[in-house]
């Protein structure tokens, strides 16, 4: 029963991770639009905002990175949910097989035992797959979190560059910096929540 619960907890937790990354992806898509708008703004602001123009490339890079991470985590998570659901069904099958009242005739192969051996070997294989896929999922989340630390730096540098631009553009450029900072925090919060969903499975 506890193996059943573990498998069920795994597919629930991993589905939660995928949904958190889906939310992070939506924010990253907004960030991508912010970056495009910022680039247009920097062009209009001219030479005084040349530095800002460069920063927009980093913002675009961060957005791309989050979208790629979300896609890859989603793929791992769906595959992991499927494995966990299969494992749950396999455990259920083994429990029911153990209740089969069967006695092999003398000199006849024990067909139930043969099935048991086969399914139990599949169970072990699924458990190994879950474990390695879980590791992969955690690594991918941690890696993305590390890479997103740059968001706060980009936000600070954006403010510095905004202060160098001509006055009429400063407000808009500062607003871009605010949006980058806010997007970074929100994405980070979704990654944190995703990570928490996996904590008890490790």
């Amino acid at each position: 029963m506890s193996q059943d619960n573990n498998a069920a907890n795994t597919f629930i937790s991993v589905a939660h991770v995928a949904s958190e990354l889906f939310k992070a992806q939506s924010i990253a898509e907004e960030l991508s639009i912010t970056s495009k708008n910022a680039r247009a703004l920097a062009v209009r602001a001219g030479s005084t905002a040349a530095g800002f123009n460069e920063i927009t490339r980093f913002i675009e890079g961060l957005s791309k990175l989050t979208i790629e991470a979300a896609t890859s985590v989603n793929t791992i998570a769906i595959s992991q949910t499927k494995i966990a659901a299969n494992l749950f069904r396999t455990h259920g099958f083994i429990v029911r097989l153990n209740k089969v009242n069967y006695q092999a005739k003398e000199n006849q192969p024990d067909i139930i035992d043969n099935i048991f051996q086969k399914v139990d070997s599949e169970r072990k294989q699924l458990e190994r797959k879950i474990s390695s896929s879980l590791r992969e999922l955690i690594d991918r989340l941690d890696e993305t979190k590390m890479e997103l630390r740059a968001t706060q730096v980009v936000s600070v540098v954006s403010r510095v560059e905004a202060s160098r631009a001509s006055e009429e553009f400063q407000g808009s450029l500062n607003s871009v910096a605010d949006k980058v900072s806010s997007a970074g925090s929100r994405i980070n919060s979704h990654l944190e929540t995703a990570r928490k969903h996996l904590a008890h499975l490790q």
Partner: peptide
Amino acid sequence: FSQMLTSVLR
């Protein structure tokens, strides 16, 4: 089921 669970949790 896996795809549905993942999808509704969004």
